[in-house]
């Protein structure tokens, strides 16, 4: 059962990374224009200057 001592922290850390990523996406307003973002990757010029 000692394997649990590793597995539980690992699973929590991985879950935590997911949560952090989710919080980051919310904070950087990535849900404001889902349809536009889906289309934006099709643009010929690479768009490296997001909304000011």
């Amino acid at each position: 059962m000692t394997v649990l001592a590793y597995l539980i922290p690992i699973s929590l850390i991985i879950g935590g990374i997911g949560l952090m990523a989710f919080i980051w996406t919310i904070d950087s307003e990535q849900y404001d224009d889902p349809k536009g973002n889906a289309s934006r990757i099709l643009k010929p010029d690479y768009d490296d200057h997001p909304k000011k």
Partner: peptide, 14 residues
């Protein structure tokens, strides 16, 4: 600068 928001069908122009 002009940025289209396709979800809201608006364009913001600076």
């Amino acid at each position: 600068d002009a940025r289209v928001n396709l979800t809201l069908k608006r364009v913001a122009v600076a």
